[in-house]
Design a protein around this nucleic acid. Structure first.
Lengths: 183, 183
DNA sequence: GACCCCCTATATCGGGCTGATATAGGGTTA
DNA sequence: TAACCCTATATCAGCCCGATATAGGGGGTC
């Protein structure tokens, strides 16, 4: 999904500033399947404004930059629905530095393998806790079902790492017995 | 993982042309966690050659462009290990147009929801079949364990879609009862 | 037999996106 | 009191993606 459509999606839920849109990508209901930094969001909002798909009001703030609250227009909502229907969705993109590292576990020190796996398990746990907390939408709603997808996939990933942690470490150990064998 | 390191990783397994490296990202053992198109791979190989991390030999071919077979050097292998150890790996990136569409299921026609879910279930099935087939590396090896991660996560994703297919369709139906109710 | 699409194979280019940086003041924590 | 993070907007370089160009062989279909 291109960044313009992603912004329209966030604004379809409620009016927001560019900063708040980014938070929706980072921590909000879109956090496990969408992305976007300031470098993409601000230009996207400018274009959307030019196309009449969003409008904004300036909220003056003291001691910090004025806040631009963007709001989706009727044309914006129509465009969003169009975009969501217009073609087969792109394949999901999954990119993992962790798996790349683990692929070469046999060539790396055991400490390194242990660290990256333990860090990632902690990360998944934090993500899962966070996803459990933000069940803002009603149970059985579309956002809730999409959240459930995230919970399911993260849980499966975390379990796999926990179940095979020792296997990966063993592979590294076997190749570099010099590294400390303690765990 | 930047594209240069990704190429080094592929070449660490065996010598390959740019074209073959891309296939490794698309269909090979890296296909479920790495990416890279020609527009990234060819420039990356040029840079790696300049840095002495890979070398290449030209294999003349009739009736089609000569094939450049790239091979990793000792310096290349050392650099790869360095890169894989140098810092905490980036978080996994997951981007899904499908989940974005499903998030707005309530605003979309039921046919659309049904189509995208069914297509994706078929896609996951194909991916799983493919992952099962390419167990080239020995059982219990690092590549095999990484492959297992992919199988686990894809299976979980597919099951979730199957289990909640009707729920998503229902949400769309409820909002647009005009759409055909048949299934 | 003619047509079309896909496969091998390299390479470039434009446009889009990421991540870092600039600016600015507030609050919080060690 | 220093360091750091939070709100808030904005820009920019560099990297990457996807499309396109080039070129011929093989295979399937009508």
């Amino acid at each position: 999904m291109d960044i313009k459509t992603s912004c329209l999606g966030v604004l379809a839920l409620r009016p927001a500033s560019g900063y708040e849109i980014r938070k929706a990508f980072e921590e909000g209901p879109f956090s496990h399947f969408a992305e976007g930094g300031f470098g993409s969001i601000y230009p996207a909002l400018s274009k959307l404004t030019g196309e009449g798909l969003v409008t904004f009001e300036v909220e003056a703030q003291e001691k910090r930059p004025d806040k631009k609250i963007y709001q989706i227009t009727d044309a914006g909502r129509a465009t969003l629905v169009e975009k969501l229907c217009e073609k087969a969705p792109d394949d999901d993109k999954y990119k993992s530095d962790l798996l790349f590292i683990l692929f070469f576990a046999g060539q790396l020190p055991a400490d390194r393998i242990r660290n990256v796996i333990d860090d990632r398990i902690a990360f998944y746990q934090a993500k899962l806790d966070h996803l459990s907390e933000c069940g803002g939408a009603g149970e059985g709603s579309a956002p809730d079902l999409v959240r459930g997808f995230g919970v399911t996939v993260y849980s499966a990933a975390m379990s796999y790492l926990q179940d095979h942690r020792q296997d990966f470490i063993k592979l590294a150990d076997d190749n570099r017995p010099a590294a400390d064998a303690a765990d």
